[in-house]
Amino acid sequence: METELKDKIVSIEKPAIEAPPEWKPMIMGILCNWCSYAGSDLTGTSRIQYPPDIRIIRVPCSSRVDPWFIIKSLQAHADGVLISGCHPGDCHYISGNYYARRRFLVTKKLLNFVGLHEDRVQFSWVSAAEGAKFAQVVAKVSEDIRKMGPLHLYKKENTR
């Protein structure tokens, strides 16, 4: 059963057409206001450079992120999604990131089930002091998505 599913994933994920050379990945970043968004601000303040593939949305807490937002991003235009919140135990809202963590584990399973590579959606914990870490995380996600190529599942044509 599992091998079958795996074969399926590969077949669905295989780009129907080769990515054009000018293709750039589009990553939707959803960051919590108190840790990761502040951390991404610090990346800027420290002038640490990272790949320009990410577009950032601010939410109060990682627990605000509905799996719907992830699916919708992939459906609309994104080749990958990065969700980032406070480190476990450091949540500004006491326990929000724990709910987020559980919810995302299930979301990953769903992505697997529908035949998407689960690394299209990644999660990280970045504190307000970790500007350098945020740059590393974006670089890694960007590289992973570049390796996977454009997501053709829902899009008729990929312009980016």
């Binding site: 991404s40 601000d41 990346t43 800027g44 303040t45 002038r47 640490i48 450079q49 990272y50 320009p52 950032i56 740059a135």
Partner: peptide
């Protein structure tokens, strides 16, 4: 946020920023 999230972190690639 086009300063912390664009101009300051993509200083070598004006087109992308």
């Amino acid at each position: 946020n086009i300063r912390e999230h664009a101009s300051w972190v993509h200083q070598k690639d004006k087109e992308a920023a």
